[in-house]
Amino acid sequence: MLTISRELVDKIVAHARADHPDEACGVVAGPAGSDRPERFVPMENAERSPTFYRFDSMEQFRVWREMDDRDEVPVVIYHSHTATEAYPSRTDISYASEPDAHYVLVSTASDEETPFRSYRIVDGAVTEEEVKIVESYG
């Protein structure tokens, strides 16, 4: 299960809406071992594409090093699908490389609603998990 604050959900959705029709992507860092997403880090989609995303390699290096220095991990790795449902594609599964991360997918295919779903992707196997949205972590 992914437990995430309402504020972070809103930020992810706003990023996805702002970059539509291109895919938006980013991470939410949290303290190592906590499984608690805290620090919102929107990333550049180096591909600027409606059907593909890739973190810019230099930005990824800086962000990953910053997380390392702060003893954080990428608790959530998110991206949007802009014309299809919020379910991992074959590409998403084959490139998934953080076995401990919650892979969040949002879909901006509809103007009315923005589905927000979370998955574990380990060794090519996808498991959808419940998303619990909380007002604060208490």
Partner: peptide, 12 residues
């Protein structure tokens, strides 16, 4: 030397 898997994917 730092190795990082690229974070990538997409609808297709």
């Amino acid at each position: 030397v730092t190795v990082l898997p690229a974070v990538a994917g997409g609808a297709r």
